[in-house]
Design a protein around this nucleic acid. Structure first.
Lengths: 177, 177
DNA sequence: AGAGATCTGTAGCGATTGCTACATTGGCTT
DNA sequence: AAGCCAATGTAGCAATCGCTACAGATCTCT
């Protein structure tokens, strides 16, 4: 059992139970090994979390590529709608919950959290830029504008303000339902 | 030493060190008392955190009212600029870091976190509605739109993507520098 | 003044934390 | 066959966790 085969199992555990409550023994149990072996492989819990965050970022990138393929949208609203549909998909929900934990860690200045958060946002931003409508007057700025709106929407939804988020999007003129 | 006099000291400690790492003995030390007494007053750590979150929400509301008073802006961009200036103020930074922890808890479904997050967003939304420019065509929807944009901007800034956030705002047409 | 309620310190419990020392296994090389 | 080295289990350490039992202290009301 190597690092690489451990990481998916560890990721599954933190997706289900959160990063904050993740301690070595439960993690080991979920991965079918012992705390002793986790430290043997990763050296330190901190290093384990850092590698795990990296793995999650790579997984997120792969998920984005796979789930969001398709022909290029015609309007900005369609771009937003596609992302939101993906983010709200039940299978994505555990990841969304974890995302805010990563943001919290990044906001506190923890390097590995910040790196993972940036990597994921870079990935999403790249996808957005590539999906901007063909005749868009400002694809680069527009992608950043949409990213900002999307993340604000997801945050409001995360705390139970989905109504506010919906009305905000409606008033944006993007007319995503 | 009563609950009410304890809460500000406890709040100061979690603002400095985060909610996740807050355990009874350090909290008690910061408040000049003992873990024994914290449990005497609040019954349970969970109840303590819940009351603390309520206190933080009330404090946030008071801070907003105090810091953001002034004549009504003329453009939506000025509304956004005023909020962002407040959020970026050094004195607000510890609260901003804590905010994402609250969001993470709310996203995981913890009731007290969700209640506090909603209360704070209600407060901010109310302030925004009251500050929308006089002739605004859609003050209610516009306030929600601005709230979404603002929170997205703050999130990107929290993870070190301030450049992306700035470009997104520029492309929004609100022209907040 | 005496009785009861309120407040607070001391000590400790059982569980969990990250991590380590030591011993053992097993396969590979020579 | 001998020896070496990576892999793994067992046991335990000191620290911390939330919480509780017990004993004084202090205060209030009659």
């Amino acid at each position: 059992m190597s690092k690489d085969s451990l990481l998916p199992l560890l990721a599954q555990h933190v997706l289900a139970h959160g990063l904050g409550q993740a301690s070595l023994r439960p993690l080991a149990k979920a991965a079918g090994t012992s705390d002793r072996m986790l430290l043997y492989h990763f050296g330190t819990k901190e290093a384990l979390i850092a590698e795990l965050l990296g793995y999650l970022a790579r997984t997120y990138a792969a998920t984005l590529d796979a789930a969001l393929a398709g022909e290029r949208p015609v309007t900005r609203g369609q771009v937003v709608a596609r992302i939101l549909k993906h983010a709200r998909h039940p299978a994505t929900q555990p990841f969304t919950a974890l995302w805010w934990e990563i943001v919290a860690g990044a906001a506190r200045g923890v390097d590995s959290y910040r790196a993972a958060a940036q990597a994921m946002m870079d990935e999403l931003l790249g996808w957005l830029e590539g999906q901007m409508p063909a005749g868009d007057p400002d694809p680069k700025g527009g992608a950043r504008y949409l990213l900002t709106l999307i993340e604000g929407t997801l945050m409001l939804a995360a705390i139970g303000h989905e109504g506010t988020a919906r009305d905000g999007l409606l008033a944006s003129g993007l007319a995503a339902s």
